[in-house]
């Protein structure tokens, strides 16, 4: 398998790696970068556990070749904390029990993050549409929807206070 140079940013850090052309982004993140927060829950494109953000858009890292991210910005769940503090979405998923076993959670949170970037005030249908490709087997999704709303409420309360 031929290899290529991959230059990109992962969670804000510039990296240059030589990777096989057939390497999946999810394997690159987990095995080369060592960022194991992104999960693999299926054999390709079925579950959404591997959802990351590439250039601002939610992508299945298991359906994306690492080399196709050359020159792009990749963000994973590990990027969301700021100065050791969890993001509003992370806090909401924790406090509202949007995560039970937590295996779907990194993908679920990254898909929600992508949603809130383009739709800062989503209704239930917006959330359902954007998270349609993310399977959760624990929660029945009820508390996931609540978590996204809670994150929005916290963020807007904070903005109002500022």
């Amino acid at each position: 398998m031929s290899k290529s140079m991959l230059s990109l940013t992962v969670n804000g850090r510039t990296r240059d790696d030589v990777v096989p052309d057939n390497m999946l982004l999810v394997d690159y993140l987990r095995e080369v970068v060592g960022a194991t927060g992104t999960k693999v829950g299926c054999d390709g494109g079925e579950c959404g556990a591997c959802t990351v953000i590439v250039d601002g858009k939610a992508r299945h890292a298991c359906l994306t070749l690492a080399v196709s991210c050359n020159g792009k910005a990749v963000e994973t769940v590990e990027s969301l904390e700021r100065n050791g503090r969890m993001s509003a979405l992370q806090r909401a998923f924790n406090e509202k029990l949007g995560a039970q076993c937590g295996f779907c959670t990194p993908g679920m949170i990254m898909a929600s993050e992508a949603l809130l970037r383009h739709t800062p005030n989503p209704n239930d249908d917006d959330i359902r549409r954007e998270l349609a490709a993310n399977i959760c087997r624990c929660t029945g999704y009820v508390k996931i929807i609540e978590s996204v709303h809670a994150a929005v409420a916290e963020t807007s309360a904070k903005e109002a206070a500022e």
Partner: peptide, 16 residues
């Protein structure tokens, strides 16, 4: 009560 191991799960630090 949120889960005692919740923060690990939402940050990606939980080790499966």
């Amino acid at each position: 009560t949120p889960l005692v191991d919740g923060p690990e799960k939402v940050t990606g630090r939980a080790m499966f």
